[in-house]
Nucleic acid binder design. Structure first.
Lengths: 274, 274
DNA sequence: GTTGAACTCCTTATGGCGTAAGGTATCATC
DNA sequence: GATGATACCTTACGCCATAAGGAGTTCAAC
């Protein structure tokens, strides 16, 4: 199960991202194109959604379009650039900024929740490296919305940058955990709960001194199980849509986000706006 | 430039991680092994450090040991499991917990800083997926240290979990940014500053209306450049070890961490110890 | 000693991948 | 009709992980 983080020729990616239809003007020699960058990107997204990034190859994408793999190279420089395009395109699903009725905190919470659910709709997105940003217009818009909210809250540039980074990584990281848990569940047919049970049984065998070597971790595991084990037992058993780990991650997401925003609130209080 | 996040047979990985030397007892038929899991893992780390995860293949690792690729399969089930072992092994470099003289906040700051620099020593580590945790003893120890600090601060299990998640993802995410920036710099021979200059020049051509479409982002870019551009101009020019983006990320790391810890502090204040 | 099992390590082969190279068919223009 | 641009194809190369099976090495048991 190998996963890719693509970085192609940044210049080519940017040109495709920011400058649409180079040959839109009607008449040109040669046969009419029967494909388009857009169609290829959409096919790529469909493949990745269905099959994870490991299943994404030029061949599989082309197959979905009834073409040979080499046909794609007429439209797209290569696989890395295709991935860049897919990545940005998916961010177009993010809802636009709304009027900030409830203050910045509510706005940021909404932003984070919407990004989180976008990542869960397209789990492969969080595997794409975000380190050397080939920022396309759609991801830029997502960022713009957050930056707008935080400037509205009265942060200075330095604090804002730190906040954006922390928020972004937090959402991405937690989403990745859930995404891969889901993936593992569907791929292996083993539910989270079963998987974790098996895992800890194995660990009990291999490292019977675990609780002594790692007392704090053991305590945390115990308190987590105790605190919410009953909780989950009360759950109506028919609903399998939100398995154990997923609900726990949901809680962790909410709690972690609240902590982060408490920290931002402290910063806002310290410097009372422009 | 494709990067892998390995998840092999978790059972096999765990056995190798937690139960060392299955055949340590002296006498067994067959030729003496001239290799060892340990040696292979070390070679793998050396390859990854030098060449990124993209350059890590069974062949390259074997080559470094003067063996054929298939020889490795005697010791290690496959590439995915090897990566699991490499990942955990590297966490052994983390310094152990120290006595918390300066309170939990200082302790967490030290923890985060040390993890951050570990990630920068082995940039490939942050590309390895941490979602389905094949927790080895060394990574467990890193976690144990953090959990111990936070329990000492008086957090309850739920808050603690959220804090750990947020901290972990924050450190990892920021480190990844710097790591890949370095990588791009050495791989292409283009410095961060040059790269960004080229990038924004290209963006100015492709999207001349950027500032209108994304006013907040433009403002942030402007204020960041203004606020610290002079700062960097005052820098002694001889030192190339900490280029522009890296210093900026350092600042972002510090600021973001402070914000996060402010949030934790609020939570600590709310529930005054056990 | 000799044998046979266990073990290490090798060569070879399979089926994937991205994509370079070069061929052919299709079209607008001259 | 010829020209040249374009879309799409087939083929091939050099990677990759790893399955299969063979050759050599070392021990315990006889």
């Amino acid at each position: 199960m190998s996963i890719f983080a693509g970085q192609g020729d940044a210049g080519r990616s940017m040109a495709l991202l920011w400058a649409p239809r180079a040959r839109a003007t009607g008449s040109a020699p040669g046969p009419k194109p029967t494909l388009s960058v857009e169609a290829i990107v959409e096919a790529g997204i469909a493949v990745a959604d269905a099959d994870t990034l490991a299943g994404l190859s030029m061949r599989t994408v082309a197959q979905r379009l009834g073409r040979s793999s080499m046909a794609l190279y007429t439209y797209v420089p290569g696989k890395a650039e295709l991935l860049d395009l897919m990545y940005d395109r998916v961010h177009a699903e993010m809802p636009p900024a709304r009027d900030p009725d409830g203050g910045w905190r509510e706005a940021v919470t909404a932003w984070a929740g919407e990004l989180w659910s976008l990542y869960l709709r397209h789990p492969w997105v969080v595997q794409v490296s975000y380190a050397r940003p080939v920022l396309g217009p759609n991801e830029q818009a997502v960022l713009e919305r957050l930056v707008g909210i935080l400037y509205g809250a009265g942060l200075d540039a330095g604090t804002l940058r730190g906040t954006v980074t922390a928020l972004f990584h937090f959402v991405r990281g937690t989403a990745q955990t859930v995404a891969e848990a889901r993936l593992a569940a569907t791929a292996t047919g083993v539910s989270d709960q079963e998987w974790w049970a098996g895992r800890s049984a194995l660990l009990g065998e291999l490292a019977p001194d675990f609780a002594e070597r790692f007392p704090m971790s053991a305590r945390l595991a115990g308190e987590t199980a105790a605190g919410h084990g009953d909780d989950s037992a009360q759950e109506p058993p028919g609903d399998e849509a939100a398995p154990y780990l997923e609900r726990q991650m949901d809680r962790t997401f909410t709690v972690g986000l609240a902590i982060l925003l408490d920290g931002v609130e402290a910063a806002v209080g310290r410097e009372p706006g422009p």
